[in-house]
Design a protein around this nucleic acid. Structure first.
Lengths: 337, 337
DNA sequence: GTTAGCACTTAGGCATGTCGAGTGCTAACC
DNA sequence: GGTTAGCACTCGACATGCCTAAGTGCTAAC
């Protein structure tokens, strides 16, 4: 029994199953792929593959389907990432170039990726930490309510309303704004807290309480900003691709809604040498995703923010991986300097 | 055949069907509800209701289920909006009060409403038009790229990047900012364009082209801002409540993703005198929602922005309407002055 | 206008039978 | 030793027939 052929058989099973959605039998295999042997031989190979836990039979007299382990081997060793068609590349470029503000870029990216892959697309907001504070604005909404706006050089704008704890005049606020601005402009967001503390320390005792409140607000903004949010698109694909649902979509929708779960999952995924990480079926830490796979990669200057897709374990990995990788590259380019 | 009893029968059918998810027969009706007549009489009433198109039988020998028209009559004339339990009211209050920035408020609102109703919640971003310009900020991201930030007194912050058409210095930009600020601060967003034109006209010829670009950007912001976005929550409820799906969720997910469709639908809904609008099944202009109902209402100072839910036509209207109305009220209060 | 009674319809459950796809095994073959 | 043909066996999918329970519509009596 030749080892290379066994892998070839696994590859054929994965490809056929992804394509047909039906368990694939030995006879169908020899017909569709020109392996130069008979179906009986294939049966022996398949029995071996089953012993190794790479494929399984849903019931006695049906064909075989790949297991999570089988998909893993397929992704790691057998398949090559398929390059995108020029048409697709062009589509990515045109679609992404038309956009300007960050929300819009991410939104378009998600929609694009979901169309390209026919899966659910997930795009995490880029991390702010490496960015540099460009501008701070305080706006008095009510005597005690102050809207804080933090603008970073990445073009990202974050906002929050804080309670000043006491009534304020526009003048006081303007003074404070100047103080803060001179103290933190140009500071990397990551080390903002230290600088804020210095500014607060430099305030007059009268200003102190308000400055403290504002400083806290800014700190919160920098720390807790939108990088823990994400954009979704293509949820409808879940229902479509699963007309005969091997994937019960309820738990998956729940996972998608629990953004914390998804974000955690994305950042925990080990980066594959080929630049795209894949998490298959039960490899996912979240039970609701036991029948789903995630394909993701980082984007942006340090690739910490993630972009990816989620779909049934039975998906076309080579094509999907190519799409995710390509979109991430274009996205990095657009957001870059 | 007494007319009031016929309505009572319809009411009983709707309530039972919503509760049991199964067609309801004449015998079950007399047992569960103390109508003082026999099942034969009810049968006569039901035949009449069917003639009027208010109920229908899925097959010859099954009970009846309400039609869209039946639900409509139920909602309009029979049912009373159920008040929320004190516990629920408290939950709404605590959950919404903890939040500060607008994104957060809307997000929490959506989650809350979806939990309260077990349906998909939709919250439209509040309209900016009535708001007053509080602040404008220009930030130079690259020599020719300017980030424009527009802050309204509602606490809403919008942003956009524009191409200035020529290289700029920080100084030039600061001058222009002052000009724009003095020209438009305090202006209602709705009439911003006129004021912008005046500012541009008042610029020196050298400044003109840049001012024009910036003015255009601001105008676009005011006009086209996030009011055409919306927040979703509880999509997983679609899958859950429809284990035996009378509602195929694919088209519904598609509709939800086409935000344009949903926003259009929300704003087209006629306001009910009781303050909550309902659109039932085929009343919806969008085909994918033929088996779904939308319950929505306006919120905010002039109730133009909408908040609502979407679910199967077979839903508990009285309770749902109460929840939507209550949440909208709390939301208005939170966002109010 | 209401009721009882009865004939009629139909979905759904269940047992039964058949068909075909696919397997595992054994014995022969190169 | 690896490969092949052949064959018995298993099981899901599908069709058929039958039965029951639920529910209706109608008619005649109250």
């Amino acid at each position: 029994m030749s080892e290379p052929r066994k892998l070839e058989v696994l590859r054929a099973i994965v490809e056929d199953y992804v394509h047909s959605r039906e368990p694939v039998g030995s006879k169908a295999l020899v017909e569709r792929h020109h392996l130069g042997v008979s179906s009986a031989t294939i049966r022996n190979d398949m029995a071996a593959l089953e012993d190794e836990g790479l494929i399984t039979a849903p019931h006695t007299s049906a064909g075989r389907i790949p297991t999570d382990k089988g998909y893993r081997l397929f992704v790691d060793q057998i398949s090559a990432v398929k390059p995108l068609s020029p048409a697709e590349k062009r589509a990515i470029q045109t679609l992404l170039e038309g956009s300007e503000d960050l929300d819009d870029v991410l939104d378009r990216t998600a929609r694009l990726l979901s169309q390209l892959t026919n899966q659910v697309a997930v795009v995490q907001y880029p991390h702010l930490s490496r960015a540099v504070v460009r501008h701070i604005e305080f706006v008095l909404l009510a005597p005690r309510k102050v809207l804080i706006v933090l603008i970073a050089d990445s073009g990202k704008v974050d906002q929050r309303v804080v309670d000043a704890g006491q009534d304020l005049s526009d003048d006081t606020l303007a003074t404070l704004r100047t103080r803060f601005m001179s103290g933190v402009a140009g500071t990397p967001v990551a080390i903002l807290p230290q600088h804020l503390a210095a500014v607060v320390a430099g305030c007059t005792p009268a200003e102190r309480p308000v400055a403290l409140a504002l400083g806290k607000g800014l700190e919160g903004l920098a720390h807790n900003s939108r990088e823990d949010r994400m954009v979704l698109a293509g949820t409808a694909n879940l229902a479509r691709s699963n007309v005969d649902f091997p994937l019960s979509i309820g738990p998956v929708l729940e996972a998608l809604e629990e953004q914390v779960v998804m974000l955690r999952l994305l950042s925990d995924m080990a980066q594959d040498p080929r630049g795209v990480a894949v998490s298959i079926g039960r490899e996912n830490p979240y039970d609701g995703l036991a029948e789903a796979s995630v394909v993701a990669t980082g984007y942006g200057p340090d690739a910490t923010a993630k972009v990816g897709i989620l779909g049934p374990t039975r998906m076309d990995y080579p094509t999907t991986m190519a799409a995710v990788r390509a979109v991430a590259r274009y996205l990095s380019r657009i957001l870059g300097p």
